[in-house]
């Protein structure tokens, strides 16, 4: 097997605030391990405030105080060149941005500067990587837009002159114009209606296939994951609880939380009323001891309260962090 495009090992990132002497620590990302293969779409699912966006920020080396990385490493592999995000210098990271690693952001309807024409945004982000003459740069950009079925005229528009779906597609074009090896997409379809969503998803898939890049796709919308992702990781309260090929996770979820998620999806012909899960996701400032899901878990045992279940491989390609689903991991 070739080296993975991204390896995240033991990643731990907390928000640490101190207001008038009151220390607060929010454990938004705790001990996360996973890998993303070359040319793979890896989905990360989980409910709101489970730490998805923090995980993305940490992977993208976009942390700002009060967020702090305490442990672990994030190593990208760009065609044989390994870059450890938290050991590389500022200059190296800067050279990677957009050329090798780009983002499609949460709320990316608003990622374009409202007082600059779209053309200038392309220049700001990509000119230093594509370089050459202005005319040639424009040609590269126009070719790229055409491949994504966008009119070159959008370059002369201001963002407010484009519709929401259009802006989103322009943002995707902007993120992929340098043909990066790795793309991180953080809820790019969340604010869109299903018709536009379908178009945007098709566009992301097409461009990923065409460039051959690896992609992390984050959303709470399981239907989108089912449509797009090769592999799926489920997050709960700052931890990864289950991982596997998307179809298998849907067909046979192992973790009780995943089981609830999957059973909440409506199916055709299914007339049974859906049941909500008791309780609310825990505060990450004061997470429950042991397995963070145990207060809401219908099958929790004593061991779950005092011990953190490790992430273990239970079948080829399937990992789960649960003492019930993986009895051999019990202490």
């Amino acid at each position: 097997m070739t080296a993975p495009a991204l390896s995240v090992t033991g990643l731990r990132a907390y928000y640490r605030t101190s207001h008038f002497g009151v220390e607060r620590e929010v454990k938004a990302v705790d001990d996360i391990d996973f890998q993303v293969g070359v040319n793979e779409i890896y989905g990360i699912a989980g409910e709101s405030s489970c730490g998805k966006s923090t995980l993305i920020k940490t992977i993208a080396a976009a942390i700002r105080p009060p967020l702090k990385v305490l442990a672990g490493s994030v190593v990208f592999n760009f065609g044989g060149r390994a870059v450890d995000v938290y050991r590389a210098g500022e200059r190296e990271i800067d050279g990677i941005r957009w050329r090798h690693l780009s983002y499609i952001m949460q709320g990316s309807m608003n990622v374009l500067n409202p007082v600059r024409r779209v053309r200038n945004s392309f220049v700001d982000f990509a000119f230093r990587h594509i370089g050459r003459s202005t005319a040639e740069f424009t040609r590269v950009v126009v070719d790229h837009l055409k491949r994504l079925h966008l009119e070159p005229e959008v370059l002369d528009a201001y963002p407010h002159q484009l519709s929401g779906g259009m802006r989103q597609r322009v943002a995707i074009a902007l993120a992929t114009v340098c043909r990066p090896e790795f793309i991180i997409a953080d809820e790019p379809t969340t604010a869109l209606d299903v018709i536009v969503q379908k178009g945007v998803l098709a566009m992301i898939r097409d461009v990923q296939r065409e460039i051959g890049s690896s992609l992390i796709f984050v959303t709470h919308d399981l239907a989108v994951h089912a449509n797009l992702c090769h592999r799926l990781g489920i997050m709960y309260a700052g931890r990864l609880v289950e991982e596997g090929p998307t179809s298998e996770v849907f067909r046979q979820p192992l973790h009780p939380y995943t089981q609830h998620l999957v059973s909440s999806l409506p199916r055709i012909g299914d007339a049974e009323p859906k049941k909500g899960l008791e309780g609310a996701p825990p505060s990450l400032a004061d997470p429950p001891s042991g397995c963070r899901f145990h207060p809401r878990c219908p099958v929790a045992m004593d061991v779950c309260r005092g011990n953190v279940p490790p992430m273990v491989t239970v079948a080829p390609g399937r990992r789960v962090a649960c003492f019930v689903a993986a009895p051999e991991s019990r202490p």
Partner: peptide, 10 residues
């Protein structure tokens, strides 16, 4: 968003 994005974009 557009400022954060520009910073991410180098």
């Amino acid at each position: 968003d557009y400022v954060v994005y520009a910073e991410l974009g180098g």
